[in-house]
Amino acid sequence: MTAVLENTANTAQDGQAGAVASFEVTLKIRRYNPEVSEEAIWEEHTVTAHGTDRVLDALHKIKWELDGSLTFRRSCAHGICGSDAMRINGRNRLACKTLLKDVNPDKPITVEPIKGLPVVKDLVVDMEPFFASYREIMPFLITSGNEPSRENIQSQADRDRFDDTTKCILCAACTSSCPVFWTDGQYFGPAAIVNAHRFIFDSRDEGATQRLEVLNDKEGVWRCRTTFNCTEACPRGIEVTKAIQEVKRAMITRAF
């Protein structure tokens, strides 16, 4: 069912905890196609959905049955590849992880591209600026001296120190929910800081000083206004704001 539009309504779905019967749902989608017009418009489509359908299923149904030109990114369809972050009823989420029944299908559900990145077409944005910030914080293990012949030794407690930030799937839901990022595209944004955190607090890494230098920049970590939008937006449940605070603290105390 992940794959195709129709639902196995009479099979495993029925009787499962949380399952609900089929219902009509209207999606109000922000459409933009520069080949047609410079103006973005709202377009509504109503489709029949089933108990465990997600916003992605409804989008697919529209694309596959009604309007093939509706454009969005998606791949794994279960919240791990990070392709389909979008603004659903005003909040950043993954379309494949948002069940229709959980976003009140009684009213039209608004679907827009994530904010702060240039829109390419419909729900697709240009991700390059986002990945450029990511690359700038040196998102790789930096070590010096001879490599160990076996693995590096690391205690489970040290490993746990940065566990939360290893969950990041680079979907940009956090960065594109940040009001500072909306007004200042130069700001590194939460995702880049999360990935810096992942290495700064890794006991095997020796590049923390360099990374903190990068993030001490005027477009760095100090631009964060602690609005917690990012934490709320993260589909992986990462405590993004906390990670940013920890990076700020490390910058002052130089303890990591």
């Binding site: 160990p148 076996r150 693995e151 489970q156 490993r159 890794d202």
Partner: peptide
Amino acid sequence: AVLDLERMGLPFNRTPEGRID
């Protein structure tokens, strides 16, 4: 292959001795 990945930075779960679990 596993040791390469660890040295590239992969955060494996660890044993009480700090080796790859």
